[in-house]
């Protein structure tokens, strides 16, 4: 379980996060949604320690991440997997070495054991015969899947996905969404997805947090979101003609 309490973050004089609190349960897909500039990415970066919070707490199973120094954060970081918006695969390494990276760095596993783990992760995201390929040789969807494989290589307890569907066609988006959902259920991971793709939200969002102007504006499930009377959320969710008609 991940709990955030009164997270505040400013850049120069601009307050981006104005005291956000939320709880993200284990084994559930938690979606953070909001318009551009609402603070979604900043919130995720604060949660994984890429930005330092100005005040507030980020608790990973009651361990306050914000109070720890770099060395003490490492054990928690080993429990975190993250899929980045642009996949962020290491260009100079093959797919196999990308997925094996954390295993090489942090474990004493033998090569064959690591290879088995890599193959398991790649098979889990439905990728075969790509071990020796380099990121430049992969399509956008394949890169995302390798990104997921890398994120789950260390058997994480917490999985972050930053805009997992950006730049993907609708069909591939569904494949990625389903993968995230399946992995969350299968390994009982606390998954947090930062997205503005409403299809994903409706499909896999067990718990949805809507950010607006740096504040938590609304929280609920994907069933509740369809019937909300929150005007800002309605404006965001039913922005497209298609969804507007669906709402009517």
């Amino acid at each position: 379980m991940i709990e955030i309490k009164d997270i505040k973050k400013s850049f120069d004089d601009k307050e981006v996060l104005k005291g956000i609190s939320a709880t993200f349960k284990s084994g559930s897909c938690n979606m953070i949604i909001g318009g551009s500039g609402s603070g979604k990415t900043t919130l995720i970066k604060c949660m994984v320690g890429l930005h330092e919070v100005d005040s507030g707490e980020v608790l990973y199973d009651d361990r306050d991440f914000t109070k720890l120094n770099f060395e003490d954060r490492i054990p928690i970081r080993k429990e975190i997997g993250m899929l980045f918006q642009g996949s962020a695969l290491f260009d100079s390494l093959s797919v196999q070495d990308n997925v094996m990276f954390a295993l090489n760095m942090f474990t004493d596993m033998g090569h064959s054991e690591k290879l088995d783990r890599v193959n398991f992760c790649l098979n889990r995201v439905n990728l075969e015969n790509v071990n020796k390929k380099f990121p430049a040789e992969l399509s956008g969807g394949m890169k995302k899947r390798v990104g997921i494989a890398r994120a789950i290589a260390m058997n994480p307890k917490y999985l972050y996905c930053d805009e997992p569907n950006s730049g993907l066609d609708p069909k591939t988006s569904i494949v990625i969404d389903n993968l995230i959902q399946e992995i969350t259920d299968e390994f009982n991971i606390t998954t947090i997805v930062n997205t503005h793709d409403m299809n994903s939200v409706m499909e896999i969002g067990d718990n949805i947090v809507f950010l607006h102007q740096g504040q938590k504006w609304w929280e609920g499930s994907n069933k509740e979101i369809k019937h909300t009377d929150n005007p800002e959320l309605n404006e965001f969710v039913f922005a497209s003609k298609h969804f507007k008609e669906m709402q009517k």
Partner: peptide, 15 residues
């Protein structure tokens, strides 16, 4: 390039 493509962020998240 590693910085702007979030590869350094990926390293840091891994610890």
């Amino acid at each position: 390039t590693m910085r702007v493509t979030e590869q350094i962020d990926a390293l840091e998240v891994m610890g």
